[in-house]
Structures are given as structure tokens and as C-alpha cells.
Design a binder for these strands. Structure first.
Length: 424
DNA sequence: TCTGGGGTCCTAGGACCC
DNA sequence: TCTGGGGTCCTAGGACCC
């Protein structure tokens, strides 16, 4: 029987911001999404003030003033760096981990024998991450991923657990599941939970006791697996190696509404350049490109326009120039002059291994021009990695009036020499 | 006035083929 | 004049996750 430990950082983005601002300990803190749109991370104090996940910032203005809530724009460069430190620390404690998201991983504890040592493992992991990285984590331990998520949920919710819950005992599983709303089960979202409620399935235990075949018929094979997992039957294995991406997406809401084609084209060129960079970092090339634009769904009284168009390249490519020119053509065909666009994005798909670099070894007959091009792009990537966006394509624009809002950005404490914290 | 971004997987239904 | 059915592939859209 496998044993999974789900380790996840408490209020991750907030904890990252506090790491370099210990004065914020005990104070309400929130971190906003891109464009300073919504609250996506809240400290315990902010949660206690009733701030819900994804509340738009403008609805919080009052509360922020009244309670002196400290507000940050998201600083993904910082979070990604801290995340890596957390994962490296946990990897040293369990050779097999699966990095599941920026702030959590599943560790394989198979072989850690007794219950006593399972809890002990959790305590050690928690203490080590706290000591080495300064991040608070909780650990949930169980024979399936879904149950370990549930155990983690309990570890966070009940202080007396000390942040570590061992849910390997079936009786204990049942007792906890009876207390947990079905909507808090991993894999049960808003829609499905509403339908389950109608069927009289209100708790995790109700779902565990439902007939899996019936659930499959009514819903899908995915929810059937959830039922099995709640019963201690592991159906979702640990996947330590990250699979190659199947899609790369880059999209942004604009800092303000866009009504001019040229401005939108700059933004789309910018997204495309970024996506192409990610593509090359993955050592992949793409065959398809999709562009989408949309007006704001919140502006009910305005004429709406949601459009999406794709194109296919004859040969797989990772060339920013080619991609930008393809994206621009698609945008042109969709564009309507009389709309106020709120968001745009591009997607790359249908990947294949980077032909140039693999062919370099195998064949000598790579056209010189392609090879030159590849060298140029990799030089570009190398420079931009040191200082993001130092070199740009002209089509990405200079004024960048569409750029997102980031009014409360913290310094790049760990990734920029300029922002290194000073010790006085 | 202001409402995130980046992913994955599954399913239904249409197109197409024999 | 008669006018099937099954399999496969692809795509769009929906659901979920953090």
C-alpha cells in the first residue's frame, strides 16, 4: 500500500512576503493577482476579517483602510525562487516527490513503517522547512492522494494537530470525512458539488459511500476515481518526473481597456515573445498558434466580443519572429474597432522535440540559416534570463500603455542584486 | 473606474471512412 | 427505388486544480 504525504505551505505568497518583512507577523496581509485584480493569498488575520479568496480588490478598499491591511502585488519571481528552496529541502527528506504546484508537493512515504514514524516524518519535514527556508508548512499523510489532501485540510484547520495529520487509520478517515463538506474534497468543484448536494450527498463520507459505478454514469470516470480514493484505493499514482507540457499559454488582462489595433498588436507580440521563450526553455517547437481577445464580461452594457483563432505552421517552429507575425495576422482578422478590449492571450500547441538541436548531433545538413537563427535566439534567451526583457522585438512596443498594474510590488529580494535586503 | 493566469483531463458530437 | 452502422479521429467546451 502506498503512503502519500501532502506538504503544502500555509498562505504561500503571504509567507514569502513576510519572510523579508518580519514586521508583518501578526498583521493582516493580502497578495493580489496579476493586474492587482483579486486577493489570491490572505494571512490568517486577513481571513479572520472575512476576506474570501478571489475577492476583487476594489471591493476591499474600505476594509483595507479600516484595518490597515498590508497589500502586495504578486511577485512571482520571488515566489518561484522560495518554492524551489522548499522543494529542494523536502526532496532531501524523501527521494521521491512530485511537485504538484508552486506551494505543494506529494512525497512518497512508502517504506516508512510504523504510524509513529509517519507522524514523526511529518514533524521533521515541517521543522526542517521552517528552519532552512523560513516557510510554515502543513503535512497530511494517507494511503491515497485524495485522502492526503483531506488530511492536510485537517492539519491546517485544527491547531491541536500541530500541522501534521496521519490519516492512515480507516476509522479516523471516516470520522474526518463525516465532518468535511463534499465541496472541500479534492476534485469536487462548484458545479459538481451543487449536483451532489441535490442528490443528498453533502459530506465527504456521503461521497465515499456512494456507488462508484453510479457516480461514473452520472458524472465521469474522474469522480469515480475520487470515490475509490476516498475509500483508500489509490488510483492516482505519484508522478515524480514532470511530463512535457502540451500547451503554453500567455495571457493578460490589460492595465486599461484597449481600443486601438496597434496597441493590442504590441501586447500580443509581447505575450508571443514570452511564450516562445518558455517554448525554447522546454526544448520544444510548436506547430499551432492560437490568439484570443475579449472584452470585459463585467461590462454588461457594452458590446461584447470574444474571439479566438488558430493557425498551423508548415514546419514546427520556436522562432519568435515567425510566431509574432502569425499572431498579428490572426489578431487582424478578429479585430473590431468599436470594442473596448480587456484581455488577450496566445497559446502554443502541438509540440515536437526541438528539431535543430536534436538534428545538430544526428545530421550535419541543417540549413545554415536555421542554425544561425537558433543561435541568435539562444543568445537572446541567455541575456534576457539575466535581465528580463532587456532585449525585445520592436513589435513589442516601447510605451506599453497596456501593461498590467502592479502598484504594490515588493523587491526581488532573492533574485536581483539591486534588491538584496540590507542588514543594518 | 477597478474583477488573475496557467495548466490538465474528459466528454459529446460531428466528420469521415469503409 | 432502395438510403446502415460501426469505428476512429478531431475539436470545442466544460470541469477541475492551484
Amino acid at each position: 500500500m502506498p503512503i502519500f504525504a501532502l506538504c503544502d505551505v500555509n498562505n504561500f505568497y503571504v509567507s514569502c512576503e513576510r519572510l523579508f518583512r518580519p514586521d508583518l507577523e501578526g498583521k493582516p496581509v493580502i497578495v493580489l493577482s496579476n493586474n492587482d485584480g483579486c486577493a489570491v493569498a490572505r494571512s490568517a488575520e486577513a481571513k479572520a476579517l472575512g476576506i474570501k479568496m478571489s475577492t476583487p480588490r476594489f471591493e476591499l478598499d474600505d476594509l483595507i483602510q479600516r484595518h490597515e491591511i498590508v497589500t502586495f502585488s504578486s511577485n512571482y519571481t520571488l515566489y518561484a525562487d522560495i518554492s524551489q528552496r522548499v522543494m529542494t529541502t523536502l526532496e532531501a527528506l524523501s527521494p521521491r516527490i512530485e511537485i504538484y504546484s508552486i506551494d505543494e508537493c506529494f512525497a512518497d512515504l512508502t517504506g516508512v513503517e510504523t504510524n509513529h514514524s509517519l507522524v514523526e516524518w511529518g514533524r521533521v519535514a515541517k521543522a526542517t522547512v521552517q528552519k532552512n527556508v523560513g516557510m510554515p508548512i502543513c503535512v497530511g499523510i494517507a494511503p491515497t492522494k485524495t485522502l492526503s489532501k483531506l488530511a492536510n485540510h485537517a492539519a491546517k484547520k485544527y491547531a491541536k494537530t500541530g500541522g501534521v495529520v496521519d490519516l492512515t487509520d480507516p476509522e479516523r478517515q471516516k470520522r474526518l470525512m463525516a465532518l468535511v463538506d463534499v465541496c472541500d474534497v479534492w476534485g469536487v468543484g462548484r458545479r459538481i458539488s451543487a449536483r451532489l448536494q441535490e442528490m443528498g450527498i453533502g459530506t465527504a463520507l456521503d461521497l465515499a459511500q456512494a456507488n462508484p459505478k453510479h457516480i461514473r454514469k452520472q458524472f465521469s470516470v474522474v469522480l469515480e476515481r475520487t470515490v475509490l480514493e476516498l475509500n483508500g484505493i489509490s488510483t492516482i499514482p505519484l508522478e515524480p518526473v514532470q511530463a512535457n507540457k502540451q500547451q503554453i499559454l500567455c495571457s493578460r488582462s490589460f492595465g486599461k481597456r484597449i481600443t486601438e489595433f496597434d496597441v493590442a498588436a504590441q501586447a500580443v507580440a509581447q505575450f508571443t515573445a514570452r511564450a516562445a521563450e518558455k517554448l525554447r526553455a522546454e526544448k520544444q517547437q510548436c506547430k499551432s498558434l492560437t490568439v484570443f481577445i475579449r472584452t470585459s464580461a463585467f461590462a454588461r452594457d457594452e458590446p461584447q466580443h470574444h474571439a479566438q483563432m488558430s493557425t498551423r505552421f508548415e514546419h514546427p517552429t520556436d522562432d519568435t519572429t515567425e510566431l509574432i507575425s502569425g499572431a498579428r495576422k490572426l489578431l487582424r482578422r478578429m479585430w473590431k474597432d468599436d470594442r473596448r478590449y480587456a484581455k488577450a492571450g496566445i497559446m502554443l500547441g502541438e509540440f515536437s522535440e526541438d528539431a535543430v538541436s536534436s538534428q545538430l548531433d544526428i545530421f550535419s545538413a541543417v540549413p545554415a540559416q536555421r542554425q544561425k537563427r537558433a543561435e541568435l535566439l539562444s543568445a537572446l534567451d541567455e541575456i534576457n534570463q539575466k535581465q528580463p526583457q532587456l532585449i525585445r522585438f520592436a513589435s513589442q512596443g516601447v510605451k506599453r500603455e497596456w501593461d498590467m498594474r502592479r502598484d504594490h510590488l515588493s523587491p526581488g529580494y532573492t533574485t536581483s542584486w539591486r534588491d538584496l535586503p540590507r542588514v543594518r
